[in-house]
Write a protein that binds this DNA or RNA. Structure first.
Lengths: 112, 112
DNA sequence: TAGGTATTGATACGGATCGTGTCAACCTTC
DNA sequence: GAAGGTTGACACGATCCGTATCAATACCTA
């Protein structure tokens, strides 16, 4: 499995986005494609998914890039919280402690 | 206690915002001041706090109003999650169930 | 009740953001 | 080496957002 990497033109075609848009998103830190030795961008499946999410938040929800950035940070925290919900995956006391810390982080990101 | 209500000019002065900005925020559903019988806006302390948060997200973080709206919705969910953390406030199984539901809601709001 | 001040809703203007287009220089492949 | 794709930088419209302005209405006081 040669875990599928796409050049910017192919990625843009798959996502129906403009290559310049992808470059700008990287410049803003919204996505971080790897590079060839000649410094050409390589987009993985995960980054395509991330870009699809960004596209949805921008086009459908009308959220600007500063807002998208904040929402992506929040999403990361929520993703860390999910596995803490699995019974017997984590000791209860430890899970509670971690959950509390992640919630504090969320509040910071939300300004509350 | 005559729980402090302010007309728009006073609210704007306290927040250092333009009255027209407050009117526009209401038109977009970001805040919902009560009204006098003559339809003049009345801002409570809670709404002033909400406006302060909005102002911070817009001015400091550069997030647009669509993004602010989404973040405020997320903040509401997080506020509902917090009390579920108090030991012995809620039966454990029930707390877990509610927490799981709120997390699902968060994922919807984040598009994940 | 009459008169002055504040609020209302609607509209318009200037600055900033964002997607897109264009350009020369570089990399890659044949 | 030639052709085509990529890179970074810049510029051009469209849209968003705070602000200003306006006539009409509400409030308050004399």
């Amino acid at each position: 499995m040669d875990d599928d990497l796409y050049l910017i033109s192919m990625a843009a075609r798959l996502l129906d986005m403009h290559p310049q848009t992808l470059r700008k998103y990287e410049r803003l830190g919204l996505v971080r494609p790897s590079r060839t030795v000649g410094s050409m961008r390589l987009y993985s499946r995960d980054e395509l998914d991330r870009l699809r999410l960004i596209k949805h938040l921008v086009d459908e929800a009308g959220i600007n890039l500063a807002g998208v950035q904040r929402l992506l940070s929040i999403a990361e925290v929520v993703q860390r919280i999910r596995p803490l919900m699995d019974e017997e995956a984590v000791p209860r006391a430890e899970a509670r402690r971690r959950l509390s810390r992640e919630l504090d982080r969320l509040c910071d990101m939300l300004g509350i």
